[in-house]
Design a binder for these strands. Structure first.
Length: 801
RNA sequence: GCCGCAGUGGCGGAAUAGGCAGACGCCCGGGACUUAAAAUCCCGUGGGUAGUGAUACCCGUGCCGGUUCGACCCCGGCCUGCGGCACCA
């Protein structure tokens, strides 16, 4: 009789064994086929591991373990994205150095991950706050600077009033700070920027070459927001200057009845003297500037604006004079900060025209432009449009752009919603930016030999209200000499955002201890790209986009061998509290993974999180569900007493075995962990029904289950004396021919309704099948049989009147 | 408003080149074991009507219509929920 299943003991035992043997270390044998599986490295927060973490980690652990059994050299690494605000805030509050806080948090996280039995290669552990790591983050920054992709500029940025820190556009959600939820205001500051817009086209186009789930591709495309249109110059009446606009609808040029410039448009000051109502316009501009981003989007419903008295434009296609307005619905930061307004065919222009009684001229037939703007580009035909009249929208676009180019009035142009990346943070706990500001030479990069530029120890990490980094107070660190002229100069005191370290970390795993390069060419050539990367949807427009940008830059610099970092990207759903709401302390629905491991075991937690539902859908926690998975493992454990001396698969279960191997193998590849586990549950139900299981059947079962529940299966492997270690065995094979029964039971329908079932040979002829089918339902058939359908292996349908 | 995803038992969810809807798990009910309970094992479990009963029939995948021998699946029109974007010209 077997011992009782005690996960506490066996899980610790196998974790130690794996460690001692370095069971999951990737080798440097570059002749073997490789597989690089990656999950997003966590931010080691003070709260410890959340039950959300194990979901993606377990999923790719399953893939990694399976790949090893299939003979691949697998790299499945883990590390720490450890720079960041919560650590800094905690440090300030408790007067502990962020370094110490990070160290403690990492130790706790590592223990927790360890207790879950992941097959990470801990020899390659990295930490973004380690100077040996951020040396290379700084090195990449210098490359970007030298390539002209990092620049400093004075601009209005998103300023979080609580974090006292600038934010990237991507970090502002609904007008508030993504991290702390506080109000975000505009503040003009001198900022380091990264020119991600230089890669906008590639970031969209190259999505065609990778295997990302569709949702991710769509979100990235929307965020980058590419549009094709034209820039057109309108003459100003009695002036030399032209007013340049951007439009995606040059075909509607004949319908322009007015123009609008943004409140920040430079012409307002330039023509100050000629504008008769300048005071009114200045007042409007001030009012617009006062609105925060939040207000500007919240109060977007009602259009406001002021007509510029003393300035008007000429429509280039028909010579008509048209008024120019100022309104905050036109943004200075997109296009040229000025638009041509076509109220008949643009919803915003239509609202504006209605409000201020401006004329609406229909140029595309198909709607009722008095009732609403007609914006359907697929069906309309041009009217009232001179030489464009009668054309479709598409034809007209082509024709008008050709004409504009010929006349020198306009050019085709593409625009993006994507903005450059605000890269400065006015905080302490981040990578120092390796730049010196010299009064003579301007911004001067440090020499590579000076890297890493280490964070100095400061007394006080408190951010300041004036928007300066805490580093600014460290005079002995700030004051330095210019690498260029040798004169006195000051270091940059802003630090990099958290996204810096995570933008290239997957490269470092390939060669984590290299002191001379970010990673060797051989290691990068062999391991890159990442074969499968899983991470949260919330990183689609942040980390995922940023890291693709850096990677593309490094590819152009010939540092990395491939243009895209990740071959495949999947995303997991969130784990919610048992009440279906997001887990949070205030809702009191938080589940601590440690408690689950203590009470049920790591294998149960792993199994449950994979069984909880479709991998990409969010799912609510259920304690009863956890128990069900523990019960399943208990049943697997107890099977050891039913194992017979027989080898091979028993006759009655042979087909079930082959079917299960096939299903589990393919489900693990297709994010269908829940049905893979269901198939194994089903199989052991069959074993129980029979009351016995052969040695080889049991061996196959625990091998299939091993990636999900590695400890219990390894223990059973040892108990059963199968020889060697389970994790070193090979993945079970199946024979396609043996996955189908010789006889199949199929439904017999009469007029589309199932009335009986019959057993048939799998390759039964139509005649035999129909004869058997008719016999089974003979009482229901009439004499008038209209149609007989037989789909082998699927269905028989007899249609009669 | 635009884009994307989804809607199936009491619950989590299976099943789509169109072919026996509800796999697997949870909950619940019954039985075995036990002095008893827990645990475990076995059986049942979409709803309804009829029958002592094996069983029979009807209804069932958000709603309305269509295509088809046959629709959770395809098409048209709605409703609801979730996620993303949101004055980007």
């Amino acid at each position: 009789m077997s011992q009782v299943y005690n996960p506490k003991v066996i899980e610790k035992k196998w974790q130690q064994t794996w460690d001692e043997k370095k069971a999951f270390a990737a080798t440097d044998d570059y002749s073997k086929p490789k597989y690089y599986a990656l999950v997003e490295f966590p931010y080691p927060s003070g709260q410890g591991l959340h039950v959300g973490h194990p979901r993606p980690y377990t999923a790719l652990d399953i893939v990694a373990r399976k790949r090893r059994m299939q003979g691949y050299n697998v790299l499945y690494p883990m590390g720490w994205d450890a720079f960041g605000l919560p650590t800094e805030n905690f440090a300030i509050k408790n007067k502990i150095h962020p370094k110490i806080v990070t160290k403690n948090n990492v130790a706790r996280f590592k223990n927790q991950l360890h207790s879950l039995g992941y097959s990470f290669d801990w020899d390659r552990e990295i930490n973004t706050t380690d100077p040996n790591y951020y040396k290379w983050t700084q090195w990449i920054f210098l490359k970007l600077f030298k390539a002209g992709l990092a620049y400093k500029t004075e601009m209005p940025i998103n300023w979080c009033t609580s974090c006292k820190c600038g934010l990237a556009n991507e970090e502002v959600v609904n007008g508030v700070c993504e991290r702390c939820g506080s109000e975000v205001v505009r503040r003009v500051k001198s900022q380091w920027m990264l020119k991600i817009t230089a890669y906008a086209d590639k970031l969209i186009d190259d999505l065609d070459s990778v295997d990302y789930i569709e949702r991710v591709k769509v979100s990235q495309k929307n965020w980058i927001g590419r549009s094709n249109g034209a820039e057109v110059e309108f003459s100003l009446k009695d002036k030399e200057e032209k007013l340049k606009i951007y439009t995606t609808r040059p075909d509607t040029l004949f319908g322009v009845t007015y123009m609008v410039v943004s409140p920040e448009h430079p012409y307002l000051d330039k023509f100050k003297d000629e504008i008769k109502n300048y005071d009114e316009i200045v007042a409007y501009r001030e009012q617009a500037a006062k609105k925060s981003d939040f207000e500007r989007t919240e109060l977007a419903k009602e259009k406001t604006g002021v007509q510029i008295d003393g300035l008007s434009a000429i429509n280039p296609v028909n010579g008509k004079e048209i008024p120019i307005w100022v309104s905050d619905y036109v943004l200075m930061s997109y296009g040229t900060g000025a638009i041509m307004a076509v109220p008949a065919h643009d919803t915003r222009d239509w609202e504006f025209a209605k409000k201020f009684n401006l004329p609406i001229v229909e140029v595309i037939a198909g709607g009722d432009v008095e009732k609403e703007a007609f914006t359907d580009v697929a069906t309309g035909t041009l009217v009232n449009s001179g030489f464009l009249t009668g054309m479709s929208v598409e034809e007209a676009k082509k024709a008008i752009v050709e004409w504009l180019e010929k006349e020198g009035l306009g050019v085709p142009k593409r625009n993006f919603k994507l903005r450059d990346w605000v890269f400065s943070r006015q905080r302490y706990w981040g990578e120092p930016i390796p730049i010196v500001k010299c009064p003579k030479c301007g911004y001067v990069p440090l020499d590579e030999s000076e890297l890493p530029l280490e964070l100095p120890d400061v007394e006080n990490y408190e951010p300041t209200d004036n928007g300066e980094s805490p580093l600014a107070k460290m005079r002995e660190w700030v004051e330095t000499t210019c690498p260029c002229c040798g004169g006195p100069a000051e270091r940059e005191t802003d630090t990099m955002p958290q996204w810096a370290g995570s933008s290239w970390y997957f490269l470092r795993y390939t060669d984590p201890n290299n002191e001379n390069e970010l990673a060797s060419q051989e290691a990068l050539n062999y391991w890159m790209p990442v074969d499968w990367y899983n991470g949260g949807m919330e990183h689609t427009t942040l980390h995922l986009l940023y890291s693709r940008f850096w990677h593309k830059f490094l590819y152009d610099e010939k540092v990395v061998p491939c243009p895209e970092p990740y071959q495949k990207r999947t995303s997991h759903g969130m784990i919610l509290g048992s009440n279906g709401e997001k887990m949070s302390k205030s809702r009191g629905n938080v589940v601590n993974p440690d408690d689950i491991v203590n009470e049920f075991g790591a294998d149960t937690l792993r199994t449950y999180e994979m069984f909880i539902g479709a991998f990409d859908a969010s799912a609510a926690w259920s304690e009863e569900g956890v128990r069900g998975c523990r019960r399943f493992l208990d049943r697997v454990w107890k099977l050891q007493d039913m194992v017979t001396d027989e080898t091979g698969y028993s006759k009655d279960l042979e087909i079930r075995m082959h079917q299960t191997i096939k299903k589990v193998s393919s489900d693990y590849e297709n994010l269908k962990y829940n049905t893979a586990i269901a198939a194994m549950m089903s199989l052991i139900n069959d074993f129980y029904k029979k009351g016995s299981v052969t040695r080889d059947e049991f061996k196959t079962l625990i091998t299939l289950l091993n990636p999900v529940a590695p400890h219990i299966t390894e223990e059973l492997w040892e108990i059963m004396n199968y020889g060697g270690m389970l994790y070193e065995t090979t993945w079970p094979e199946y024979e396609e021919a043996k996955t189908v029964e010789d006889t199949v039971e199929i439904g017999v329908q009469v007029n589309g309704k199932v009335r009986a079932t019959v057993k048939l040979a799998k390759d039964a002829s139509k005649e035999d099948a129909l004869a058997a089918g008719k016999e089974a339902v003979k009482d229901r058939l009439t004499d008038n049989i209209v149609k007989e359908i037989y789909v082998p292996g699927k269905i028989i349908n007899i249609v009669c009147r």
